[in-house]
Design a binder for these strands. Structure first.
Length: 786
DNA sequence: GGGTGGCATCTTTTT
DNA sequence: GATGCCACCC
């Protein structure tokens, strides 16, 4: 929650730096080591800082900013710093303030890519046909919109879910592939279905005066490309550009940075390829390599000394990442003591695992003098938090859960926000659909269907359709709709003059939402009512906090852009629970990584794809390097899945650790990794080209049955051309993603995914004739087509 | 139009 | 174990 001064930098340079200025600038770099200092001092021209975990990379970047200001190289408003979380931005700003003073930092542009460019878009909205108060759609809104479109374009939401479509469209947007281009590239029936929806989806967003997250990057690019004067203005403005966590940038972010840096070429990026964990949302490590191509004059600085962790933790991290290929060359080292051994804890169940964690936390606070906030428990999926929460609660240990269902994702909050968003942007279709019959006011599916038909027919928004009345609504529905519209319009009019929180309070009152919750009068509904009041308070706080005139529209755009980690502060003394992803950039004295089991971490089918497996491994690396002093790795031999307990096998990540005197068992013995249970790349054993260059599973215990199928007998030689028949009835075979199979009734299809084990092994197969099917291998008797 | 109860389907990770 | 969806009833 931060405002950026939107004034243009004063003309000219900020005056020549005197000797005093330069001395002060140098002093600011006093606390840095030689390398960090070099990174901070390299202010002119492109710099790429390749930095390991805990090496003070953000520190170096912040000092660089302070140095620029102190040495009078730029006005604050000429500095742009892009981060990946608001929290990182806030920390960077706070540290910069401490270095050079709040006064001299004001006006600097520090924020996430999304926040900064949302801001740019707000200023330039009209030139791309939006209004300033456009809505920002999260994945929920987006899926709603896609679902709306599906029947009209003859896509069956059972076969191809809105979520899948959203994923594909988002991926395409990250790669800067437009709807037209996508339609041309679509290669299979699934992609063709996506292609049918992509264009209309974009039009629907436009009609709703809304943007999705990817548009917040895509639209600025289009804006800059079509308005060279606008681009030139921003190129001039931002004399110095900084990007933190550069390994997480996607194509669109890369393109934006390149466009903006073209004039001054003062761009400093910081990244660690080993910590790239967001490929699933389009992050591309290649951007690090491209940087050196785009800026051949770029200076490369490596920060390899680690200040955070003990020697043993670092040794473990190194042993983990060594199992990945193609990591950039980097040697981590530290002057810190070796520290304690890393402990592996085996539990019989997830409940047992949670209790062990709870007990360990308690012991360490009593004996080790640690505080609750020194601990973090990290896990792969949000669902894992439940058991850990339970045991911490039972033990009376205060904790803080990051992620999961955050405040702004709760239903009542989304409903309330829908009203507020409509008042600001009445054409917002997703909000309209959410709010129109919440609370129930007699406008059900049928009436909404009529409005929708009317809107589609006249190519107007739902709002216009509803406002035009008529549309064939029944008398009762028409009255309700009119009341709804009036309430929103009243709110919209008042928004122009009254304070944002008053507008919000009155509008929610008029909506009937508050009354419905009060009338329901259950403990749950009253809790929800409290939440809505809390939202109103948040609006009040927001509107009051800013220097001047922060509007409801500003508030709404801000809340769409905050993540849950952002609210994390060091103030509460609580144990932190969060996903490994959310932990990036943070550090804790003691870290637990729970659920180190095959299928959970590495998760699901990621083991089938080498690049996905490597991303999982980097995620493990990220988790391990969050720890300063103590690290615990745990797994359970049984874990609940789909409501029933299922046996689990400890993660390959534990068995591939090769490090002397680093890891111990709880009993104090040496941890014995079962080396070679999984090995790298022995493609020679597999005649199937689909798994070429893949990791081969070799654990005879785990995969005994599949080995009997094909892998165990490569010496029999490849079958002659033609078909190879694999029987599945006594287990399941080496079926991997991409394999072509034939089914008795559906014909030929392509395997999209395989999950489950043994009896429950299930393949997701796409059949051109019948669409996507989930088939139990036990029954389906698939033939592999070669 | 709306509410309820049973059944299926999951489960990545997030700005 | 929770959410979503559908069928059925009021």
């Amino acid at each position: 929650m931060r405002t950026f001064a939107l004034t243009d930098p004063p003309a000219g340079a900020p005056g020549a730096a005197g000797a005093d200025d330069l001395r002060m600038a140098e002093e600011l770099l006093g606390g840095l080591n030689e390398r960090q200092g070099e990174a901070a001092r390299t202010t002119d021209g492109p710099v790429i800082i390749i930095a390991g975990p805990g090496s003070g990379k953000t520190r170096a970047l912040t000092h660089r900013i302070a140095y620029l200001l102190a040495a009078k190289k730029a006005w604050p408003s000429q500095i742009l710093a892009l981060t990946f979380t608001n929290k990182a931005a806030r920390e960077m700003r706070d540290r910069a303030e401490k270095l050079v003073g709040a006064e001299d930092v004001r006006g600097m542009w520090i924020g996430t890519f999304h926040a900064i460019f949302a801001r740019v878009l707000r200023r330039e909205a009209e030139s791309i046909g939006f209004t300033r108060s456009f809505s920002i759609y999260d994945s929920d809104d987006t899926e709603r919109l896609i679902k709306e479109l599906m029947p009209r374009y003859d896509v069956d939401p059972k076969r191809i879910t809105p979520r899948m479509v959203r994923g594909r469209i988002s991926g395409a947007k990250n790669q800067l592939v437009t709807a037209d281009q996508y339609a041309r590239l679509a290669a299979d029936p699934f992609e063709e279905a996506v292609a049918k929806l992509y264009g209309p989806y974009d039009q629907a967003l436009r009609r709703a005066n809304a943007m999705d997250f990817d548009d917040l990057l895509g639209w600025p690019i289009r804006l800059f490309q079509s308005h060279s004067d606008v681009l030139a203005a921003y190129q001039r403005r931002w004399k110095y550009i900084h990007i933190d966590e550069y390994q997480d940038t996607n194509r669109a972010q890369y393109a934006l940075a390149k466009l903006l840096a073209a004039q001054h070429r003062n761009i400093a990026v910081v990244g660690d390829d080993a910590q790239s964990i967001y490929a699933f949302r389009g992050a591309d490590i290649q951007n690090i390599l491209s940087f050196q191509e785009d800026y051949p004059e770029a200076r490369t600085i490596r920060l390899e000394q680690n200040y955070r962790s003990t020697g043993r933790i670092l040794k473990l991290a190194d042993a983990i990442i060594k199992n990945n290929r193609g990591q950039l060359d980097k040697t981590l080292w530290t002057e810190n003591p070796d520290g304690e051994h890393i402990l592996v804890m085996e539990a019989v169940s997830e409940r047992d695992e949670a209790q062990k964690i709870e007990r360990t936390v308690r012991d360490l606070t009593v004996r080790g003098g640690l505080r609750w906030k020194d601990f973090a428990v990290l896990y792969r999926t949000n669902a894992q938090s439940r058991s850990i929460e339970e045991s911490l609660r039972r033990g009376g240990i205060p904790y803080r859960l990051v992620g999961g269902v955050s405040f702004y994702q709760r239903k009542e909050i989304k409903d309330a926000l829908a009203y507020l968003r409509l008042a600001v942007n009445p054409h917002d279709a997703a909000s309209f659909l959410r709010a129109i019959n919440e609370p129930p006011r007699g406008v059900g599916d049928k009436s909404v269907g009529l409005l929708r038909a009317h809107a589609a027919q006249h190519n107007v928004s739902l709002w216009d359709a509803a406002r035009g009345a008529g549309a064939g609504l029944s008398g009762r529905a028409a009255v309700s709709v009119r009341g709804f519209i009036e309430a929103i319009e009243t709110g919209a009019e008042r928004a122009a003059t009254a304070p944002a929180d008053e507008v919000a309070r009155d509008l929610l009152q008029a909506s009937g939402l508050l009354r419905a919750l009060r009338d329901e009068n259950t403990p749950e509904s009253l809790a929800r009512l409290d939440n809505v009041h809390e939202l109103i308070n948040a609006v009040a706080e927001f509107a009051g906090a800013g220097a001047s005139g922060r509007t409801l529209a500003d508030f709404l755009q801000e809340v769409s852009l905050v993540a849950d980690v952002d609210s994390l502060t060091d103030e509460d003394n609580r144990v932190t629970l969060m996903t490994l992803h959310a932990s990036k950039g943070l550090e804790f004295k003691v870290v637990f990584i729970a659920g180190l089991e095959e299928g959970l971490f590495p998760l699901g089918q990621s083991t089938a794809d080498p690049s996905e497996l490597e991303e999982e491994r980097r995620l493990f690396y990220v988790g391990v390097t969050r720890a300063e002093r103590l690290l615990f790795l745990s797994y359970a031999r049984n874990r609940f899945r789909y409501g029933e307990s299922e046996p689990a096998l400890r993660s390959r990540f534990l068995d591939e650790i090769e490090a002397e005197d680093v890891v111990r068992t709880e009993a104090g013995g040496t941890f014995q990794p079962n080396a070679g249970r999984y090995t790298l790349d022995d493609r020679a054993y597999d005649p199937d080209p689909a798994v070429e260059s893949g990791y081969r599973r070799l654990d005879p215990h785990y995969y005994r049955r599949s080995l009997r199928g094909a892998h165990a007998a490569p010496q029999r030689g490849r079958p002659a051309d033609g078909e190879r028949r694999v029987e599945y009835d006594e287990g399941y075979g080496p079926l991997v993603t991409g394999t072509r199979v034939r089914h008795e009734t559906f014909g030929e299809g392509k395997v999209l995914a395989v999950d489950g084990a043994g009896e429950r092994a299930t393949a997701t197969v796409f059949f051109p004739s019948a669409g996507q099917k989930r088939l139990r291998l036990k029954f389906a008797r698939l033939e592999v087509v070669r």
